[in-house]
Design a binder for these strands. Structure first.
Length: 229
DNA sequence: TTTTGATCATCC
DNA sequence: GGATGATCAAAA
């Protein structure tokens, strides 16, 4: 790795690159890409994700396309503890509250986003300084039929709540693998959605997240519960 | 303002 | 300790 590479031409090339990054520290990656290492992530929550994007030649920026458009692959860093277990839920995509009632699981943005994901575990134990945290072995994943069905069940439950328009009931408690949580600048952020009476009203913007239990199962299955990373 | 990238802070 | 709700930054 020298500087930001061109986008990978195919899955194999992407996987090879990702595998080559395994074991490297964030400090090493940052230096190779001429990026400053922040003191901590409190005010740079997306820094690790952006660093890895750059290291792998993902399309920079915030466009609503997969990170590797040509390959149809989404990149996700996955913070893990010393045992290799995810320490955070994973943001999937914004919940399109106003039109969600017209969408089925088959054409849902959640399903599209998760169709093919390159997971990159990253050490995230709080006792580890950012500089020494290392990347783990990549996992290129698509939902199994069982996973797809389970996610579809959650989608139906969650979208039913949205369709009913009772946003006070739309909490993160619903969904086995998927959940809906606020996703905005802060608690004052608002977007428009149809309420119980069918008229537009202001409510907090939401996003779909994968629960840790789900991503934990993914990595466990792939790494055989071994040390991982 | 919305999209991307997520983690933080607090409560249970 | 884990989950929920709140929050942070950059880019377009």
């Amino acid at each position: 790795m020298s500087s930001a590479p061109l986008p990978p031409k195919n899955e194999a090339e992407l996987l090879t690159r990702a595998a080559a990054l395994a074991g490297h520290s964030l400090k090493a990656l940052a230096e190779a890409l001429d990026r400053r290492l922040p003191e901590d992530l409190a005010h740079h929550k997306g820094w690790v994700g952006e660093l890895v994007e750059q290291a792998l030649g993902a399309t920079a920026g915030n466009r609503p396309t997969p990170d590797f458009p040509r390959l149809g692959i989404e990149l996700k860093t996955l913070p893990v503890d010393a045992a290799g277990h995810p320490t955070e839920s994973t943001f999937v995509t914004a919940a399109p509250l106003r039109i969600i009632g017209e969408l089925s699981w088959a054409d849902s943005p959640v399903r599209s986003k998760l169709a093919r994901v390159l997971w990159i575990p990253v050490e995230a134990d709080p006792v580890l300084p950012l500089a020494v945290r290392r990347l783990g072995s990549p996992l290129l994943w698509s939902p199994s039929p069982e996973e797809d069905r389970g996610l579809a069940v959650d989608w139906e439950e969650l979208t039913t709540l949205v369709r009913e328009g009772d946003f006070s009931a739309l909490t993160a408690h619903h969904g086995r693998w998927l959940q809906v949580r606020p996703k905005g600048a802060d608690s004052r952020a608002r977007t428009q959605a149809y309420g119980q009476d069918g008229t537009l009203e202001a409510t907090a913007p939401r996003g779909f997240y994968l629960r840790r239990s789900f991503t934990a199962a993914l990595v466990a299955a792939h790494y055989h519960g071994g040390g991982g990373a």
